[in-house]
Write a protein that binds this DNA or RNA. Sequence first.
DNA 1: TATTGTTATACTCTATAACTATA
DNA 2: TATAGTTATAGAGTATAACAATA
Lengths: 166, 166
Amino acid sequence: MAVRPGGAAAPPLSSELSPVDGLAQLSFVILGMLERRAAADDISIAQIRLLGVLRDRTPTMNELARILRLDKSSATGLVDRAERRGLVRRMPSVTDRRAVLVGLADNGRSLISEVAGGFETDVLALLDRLPPRDRQALSRLVSQLLVTYAADHGIDLFATSDPESR
Amino acid sequence: MAVRPGGAAAPPLSSELSPVDGLAQLSFVILGMLERRAAADDISIAQIRLLGVLRDRTPTMNELARILRLDKSSATGLVDRAERRGLVRRMPSVTDRRAVLVGLADNGRSLISEVAGGFETDVLALLDRLPPRDRQALSRLVSQLLVTYAADHGIDLFATSDPESR
DNA sequence: TATTGTTATACTCTATAACTATA
DNA sequence: TATAGTTATAGAGTATAACAATA
């Protein structure tokens, strides 16, 4: 925490954070929640991201690397370790004998559900600190922000893509 | 991205994310901005966190590890690598000959300022997507959320602590 | 004895470069 | 030739356990 941007501005005196600082700290808090839930199941954020992507996709290694913004070799290692733990499976592509499809194994599906459920509990508990009207307002504003941002960056925010299109 | 919690709920049909999903994705976007600015200066998030903490503190290794929630040995390695790059300095404590104080070197101070400045630019550009009233509302809600959360978790949100108390 | 910090070691995660096998 | 994936290798980051110096 505490990246305190600017170099210029002094820390605030009141009990209100700067918008930038607030969003930065909130991001650390929220990803910290995810990390703690993951650690409770002895798994890393990288593995959680992998399993999260595979929840609604069965991509090739190549697509997987692109989605996670990793080098192909990093994806190989990530999938290797997940496969060794029985969380994912490699399957041959029927249309391209060079390609390898990656899918969730049952263990992986239950694990990601558990972690995601715990994470949701944590975030909802955090939101419960606000009165209902504020909670709704925050949720709306965050959505609005993301929708415009995602549109400009070619991100599919609601990515539930066609499993098996190969 | 896409951790999509729950296992229960289906993805939304409208153009509004669930509150949990929205906050999670927003967190990834914001920390991604920080990571990209850091990478532009060829430095990691871990190093940025270290330098960020040292902006307004000169802690012992022990305190540093506690603040960053790392094992002492991890802090040793982190500071080793930062020191090798001339970003921080180790200094002896005058009151406890076992202890080692860690402080920013000039290079470290200019580097963290640059990264933090760029990050601030990015986040402000993101916030500019909202009309001013919404922007203010979001900022207020985020602050409010953090203040209550921090109070309950013993986190000093406005940490500008006494440099040199040893 | 307890605490501070480092070292030795091991594992995960990431990237670059070189390689194999398909296309 | 170009693409998909793996392997070899290197470095950062983290943790546990053992250790030296000091309190």
